[in-house]
Design a protein around this nucleic acid. Structure first.
Lengths: 235, 235
DNA sequence: CTTGTCTTCTGGTCTATACCAGTATATTTT
DNA sequence: AAAATATACTGGTATAGACCAGAAGACAAG
């Protein structure tokens, strides 16, 4: 490979992070400092940093600086585990913030995806989830309220799957999953406090009960560097 | 959102592509031409193009230019379908190139993952796969040769799953899947003809037969803009 | 002690320019 | 007609500046 200047810087920090000299969550020197140290312009330094960002090795906080990416959490969408459970199990501290909760009429698109009538009431739930205080996931969920009378009055900062089990004695197993690696939509990026245009992982999930009735339609937007997906297929 | 110059350019081409004025596979004007048209420097133009690339809307070919990304293929790793089948079914033209095929001794890492002894013979298969002549996927497979006597003499440009079914009357259903969104490793990026540092999708798959015997360990590196993953979970 | 303000530091955006390294095409030579 | 060569064009890498907007800490006023 060509030994360009930005690759040199890239390898330098990649090495420091691998060797744990720069620790997870730690801050890198400012772009200007790095530039002085290597005698390079900011443009070149930024090229190196942006590549490391694409690798998921570092990330930025708007106008604060560049930081070392903490280890990613492993997420199995097919498992019957709530965010809180699997995040804690892996040694991290989960938290959840409810951004919006409202009963609304299903749009044509949502109705079609959920197999319900357009205009039928659905519970829209918009949450932001954190790992060790770092926002990593935006959820936009559409819940088939017909299946779950009274759910709109519950505390939905909590785990939904727990609530379903305890209050309704329901659990879903059948689901359709779809993953797409793309940049985050502008709104999701803003909610995660990162520049839109940054890469992300988009998960779409449809949960079924009773064979083919849609319980919930779930759009998830993850920081690409915060999660690995793992699924076990057994038949 | 702030109306920056690069966002303006970004929206311009995003619009043209959405409206199909610029068609899939089509070429964009050169960076210099775009710069003249909008009265911007190349640096600013490139910022816009790189964002569109992250979205998966356009892609580049080294020193040839920028092109409109064709539609992505939907891939269900859990389905019993070969690349050739699901790609053709979706209206694209698949092809495969064998880069390397060799019987080698399992390294410690590979042996551990496959549950075999270190040094045991495995068939390593390195392939590049194309959709409509565009390289989209690098496969690096380690096949448990003990399960498949004589496989090293077969034509491995063909579908492996077909071969297993026809010659050995074998099919795997149980598997572990792992997805990770990260930049492509240097070698995989080179094989795909793209700059390393570009985003990609890394799939790791372990196929089992007879409950827990590993038939095959498969590393896949996809262009992030060429594929959507879809899985149906039914129990 | 708290509150508000100022200053400094950070990354975000942008101009203007330069040279390099592959690609593709036109041109010349054989 | 085929092969070798020159040339124009593409993105890739890099310099040297500039100004802006948000974050954070120092500091003064209440």
């Amino acid at each position: 490979m060509a030994e360009t200047h930005y690759r040199h810087v890239q390898e330098h920090f990649s090495y420091l992070i691998r060797k744990n000299v720069l620790k997870a969550g730690g801050k890198l020197p400012s772009e200007r400092e790095i530039g002085e140290q290597f005698n390079l312009t900011r443009v070149t330094v930024r090229q190196a940093l942006q590549n490391l960002e694409a690798e998921g090795v570092i990330y930025r906080e708007n106008r604060k600086g560049w930081f070392v990416t903490p280890p990613a959490v492993t997420y199995n969408p097919a498992a019957q585990l709530s965010f809180n459970v699997y995040v804690s199990e892996q040694g991290f501290a989960p938290s959840t913030e409810k951004i919006e909760q409202v009963v609304q009429s299903a749009s044509a698109k949502i109705a079609q995806k959920m197999g319900i009538k357009k205009g039928a009431p659905v519970l829209f739930l918009h949450r932001r989830r954190f790992i060790d205080k770092r926002p990593v996931l935006i959820e936009r969920m559409y819940i088939n309220i017909a299946c779950l009378p009274g759910i709109e009055d519950e505390d939905l900062t909590q785990s939904l799957s727990q609530l379903l089990k305890n209050k309704y004695d329901l659990s879903y197993r059948d689901m359709d999953l779809s993953f797409k690696s793309t940049s985050l939509p502008e709104e999701a990026a803003k909610d995660l406090g990162i520049a839109s245009g940054q890469p992300g992982l988009h998960v779409e999930r449809v949960n079924y009960i009773n064979g083919n009735q849609v319980l919930e339609l779930d759009y998830e937007f993850w920081r690409h560097d915060a999660v690995n997906i793992a699924i076990e297929v057994r038949e």
